[in-house]
Write a protein that binds this DNA or RNA. Structure first.
Length: 467
RNA sequence: GGCGGCAUAGCCAAGUGGUAAGGCAGCGGCCUGCAAAGCCGUUAUUCUCCGGUUCGAAUCCGGAUGCCGCCUCCA
């Protein structure tokens, strides 16, 4: 089986062949920590979380780096607005990042570097670029000269001459070329600053990713990921810096995830419709959010709407309903999953550019097949156990339905007293035993009014919150 | 102006040359005291439109229309 990935560099699906056999080194652009993370951050982080999980499941030894940009214009501006220390502000939102992402069941990366911890490698890199003639100094700033890097534009498919530089923003006249960008910025009074050969200053935007990735992964590595918006200028500039400095290819495969729209609109400052993860999690179960995020291909735009989330929740409930049905009945044959046709199909789909949407389709085929077997009663327990194992493993890769089924259903009960529910169910069971259908139905109506749905099973009555 | 993407059933969404996955909703049935859950059947002779290539196209090519993104330190 072969893994194919869509490489932004080249604009096509390509056979994935790691630089070093059996090992994958990947770097994903993390957040600039000046505010809480929104649902768009969640998509990027969850998508690459699943990619890392799948690559590991597939047997690769993965080194995963996801950074924090903790010194930056936006952080300084926000700190000034609110009268805080930029460092304190950044630290607070790094903590908030972990709160949100832990809630979303995102696994930690192997390295989670902060820019402020990599100042020296950044200075070294800028210095090398100056020495090699790719950068020049102006008033304590250092700029990268884009005309010295002949393949500038190869990632985003642009040519310098085609771009209307300065069409929408004023060009700093001190720059030699409108697209030259800052590697190092002279610090204004009160801003975070470090000593450098060019005076007190701080890193420009793009340089930190080049420095951190090369320090932790080497000059050339396998996968670099991030949101589509980072293709230009951020990743284009990273390539220019890194390849100019090392003389070697920077990244073999560039992966970019699509955006999340909110009720058919782009999230934007002007619309002020940024949807924060913490707010989403007030209303929705974390795995339902992952189900929503992974139900479309990672490169497609997706639309966050109440309907879409309701659907994602319903899908998650369907999986958990089966898992609850299996609880204490047929244990999963975890060690035999490699032989499962469902797992086999799932891997083929994930091998095709991490097609989680198709993979989830297979997950549901496995769910239906297993329900069928359970309905049949006299079915082969081995097949049920195998399906059970495959469903759990698919869930582990996706980070969906990884918890205890009973706990899932109980967690949905926010304002409900479980003891009262159990009491009503017990009374109804007694009424049913006495064939007092009127009383049984009255008790069920009472539960329904509470938002509780019940299911009479051979083993007894179970309940959950109605959708 | 430059670059790129997308248009598949009521809704969401896979499918990149071989005859339309999956989920939600709907309808009919089985099961059930009645339900719920589950299962079965049904729901696109068809993939925005028009041409073309091919034995064969949702899938490739050309054109049209519509929507969207990037070129603004927005994931």
């Amino acid at each position: 089986m072969t893994l194919r990935v869509y490489n932004t560099l080249g604009g096509e699906k390509q056979l994935f062949e790691p630089i070093e056999a059996g090992k994958v080194r990947m770097y994903v652009c993390g957040p600039t920590v000046y505010d809480y993370c929104h649902i768009g951050h969640a998509r990027s982080v969850v998508v690459f979380d699943v990619i890392a999980r799948y690559l590991r499941r597939r047997g690769f030894e993965v080194t995963y780096v996801r950074n924090f940009t903790d010194v930056d214009d936006k952080i300084i501006r926000r700190a000034n607005e609110t009268g805080q220390d930029p460092g304190v502000l950044a630290a607070r939102f790094i903590e908030a990042f972990y709160t949100d992402m832990d809630a979303l069941l995102v696994e930690r990366a192997d390295h989670e570097p902060k820019v402020t911890e990599f100042i020296q490698p950044i200075i070294d890199l800028v210095q090398r670029l100056v020495q090699r003639g790719n950068a020049y100094t102006v008033d304590g700033d250092v700029y990268f000269d884009v005309t010295t890097f002949e393949s500038y534009g190869k990632l985003s498919g642009r040519r310098l001459e085609d771009m209307e530089a300065g069409a929408r923003i004023e060009v700093d006249q001190r720059k030699r070329h409108p697209h030259d960008f800052a590697l190092w910025k002279a610090a204004k009074p009160g801003e975070p600053a470090w000593d450098s050969p060019w005076g007190r200053g701080r890193p420009g935007w793009h340089i930190e990713c080049s420095a951190m990735s090369s320090t932790l992964l080497g000059d050339t590595f396998d996968i670099h990921g991030g949101g589509k918006d980072l293709i230009f200028p951020h990743h284009e500039n990273e390539i220019a810096q890194s390849e100019a400095a090392s003389g070697r290819p920077y990244v073999k495969y560039w992966l970019h995830n699509g955006f999340v729209n909110i009720n058919h609109e782009k999230m934007s400052k002007s619309l002020n419709n940024f949807l924060m993860i913490r707010d989403v999690l007030q209303r929705h179960y974390p795995e339902a959010v992952r189900m929503f995020l992974l139900s479309s291909h990672y490169r497609s735009p997706i639309d966050f709407t109440p309907e879409a989330m309701a659907e994602a929740s319903a899908k998650l409930t369907r999986v958990y309903t089966l898992l609850r049905r299996l609880t204490g009945r047929t244990p999963a044959a975890a060690d035999k999953v490699d032989g499962s046709p469902f797992w086999h199909r799932f891997t083929a789909e994930m091998d095709d550019d991490f097609n989680t949407a198709a993979g989830i389709g297979t997950l549901f085929e496995a769910v239906r097949a297993t329900n069928q077997l359970l309905d049949a009663g006299n079915a082969d327990q081995g097949e049920i156990a195998l399906n059970h194992g495959a469903i759990l493993r698919m869930g582990q890769v996706l980070g969906i339905a990884t918890g205890d089924a009973e706990a899932y259903f109980k967690s949905q009960a926010r304002d409900i007293d479980p003891a009262r529910v159990e009491d009503l169910i017990a009374r109804r069971t007694a009424a049913r035993k006495a064939r007092d259908w009127a009383e049984a139905d009255r008790l069920r109506d009472e539960l329904t009014a509470m938002g509780v749905a019940i299911e009479d099973r051979p083993e007894g009555t179970v309940w959950r919150m109605a959708d």
